[in-house]
Amino acid sequence: MNNTYNCLLLFLFTTVLFSQENLGSWNILNVNLKINSKWNAFTEAQLRSLSFYDEFHYYEIKAGATYKFSKDFTATSGFGSYNTYSEGGSFKNPIQNKEIRTWLQINLKNPLRFFTLEHRYRAEQRFTSNGYRNRFRYRLGATIPVNKKIIEPKTFYFSVWNELFFTNGEPFFERNRLFLGCGYEVNKNVAIQTGYIYQFDYKINDETGRNFLNIALLYNFDLSKQEEKEFIPTTSD
């Protein structure tokens, strides 16, 4: 167990070491509520900065519901408020964008021998300060338990995913977001996750990349009294 823990710490230290330049922070609090065998509700809050816990420029809060068609196929609908401020300080005015967003999403899981692959497809409707926009996202991810065969209480795990963002207007490709991280499921209700996010934004006249240290606290509450053997921690963004 100690060797596993040390390996996870070494992984996190390495990702931070190689991304110190302009390293920002990306903080997530996610609460998931299992109502019954078919329905889940969730809420999530995020706070981001462009420097290491300095120059906070973005926050969001959202909520939604998920319907489970089968063990490996779900559909989600959600809405939220997203707010981006100018760079150079913490929530420095003028605000760059205030946005109300709704979305529809489907998730497909492929349980394999040692890990689970997840395909996430999302269509977003974005009501922004600069007008209405559509956006389409695809994320491919894997969650890999380390010290147990499945993710259950007292399990360390690796998490990796990559997400592509598209629009229905030129230049069509908008963003790429990569996550490399690890986590620990403390008990059936709580998991802690951390890692490295690289976000690349494509613009016609400018191409920008950002590095973030991600820390997430994930709560899972089951009201159904039908506890599943495996709870795979995940965020809603």
Rank of each mutant, 00 (worst) to 15 (best):
I100M: 13
E124L: 10
R120Q: 08
I232L: 14
L213I: 02
V186L: 11
D206A: 12
S19K: 05
D206N: 13
I215R: 05
Q46L: 05
G24A: 09
W26G: 03
L10Q: 14
T116A: 03
L218F: 02
D72Q: 07
F231S: 00
K148R: 10
K154W: 04
S236M: 10
I28W: 05
L47A: 05
K203L: 14
P94K: 09
I232A: 06
F212C: 01
T84A: 02
G88E: 02
T234C: 03
H119D: 12
L8T: 13
W26I: 04
F156G: 12
L217W: 00
F114A: 12
N176S: 06
S86K: 05
G64H: 02
N189K: 11
G183E: 05
H119A: 06
D54R: 06
G131A: 02
F91L: 04
L117F: 10
D237M: 07
N162D: 12
A45Q: 02
G80T: 06
T235Y: 02
N22P: 01
E99C: 08
T102N: 11
E163S: 04
F11C: 11
E87R: 09
F11S: 15
E44I: 00
T66N: 12
Q199T: 11
T14S: 15
N176W: 01
H119Q: 10
S129L: 04
T208E: 14
I61V: 14
L223P: 03
K34P: 02
N27H: 03
Q125W: 07
S129I: 06
F56L: 07
E21P: 07
P233A: 01
F158I: 15
G183R: 04
K149W: 00
G80Q: 04
D237A: 09
T15Y: 03
T14M: 11
R48Y: 01
F158D: 06
I150S: 15
L213F: 06
G131Q: 02
S70P: 03
N168M: 05
Q226D: 11
E228F: 01
S159N: 15
N205D: 10
E152S: 14
L8E: 13
N107F: 01
Q193P: 04
S37E: 14
N205H: 10
T167M: 05
T66S: 13
R101H: 07
K149E: 06
K203T: 08
W161Y: 13
W39I: 09
V190W: 09
N83T: 05
H119W: 11
F136Y: 13
W103P: 00
L33K: 08
I232N: 07
L10W: 03
Y219L: 13
F166M: 02
G209H: 14
G141P: 00
L12R: 07
Y58K: 06
A63H: 06
L140P: 00
Y82S: 08
F18Y: 15
R133T: 12
Y121T: 13
L17I: 10
Y198N: 15
R126C: 10
Y5N: 14
E21K: 15
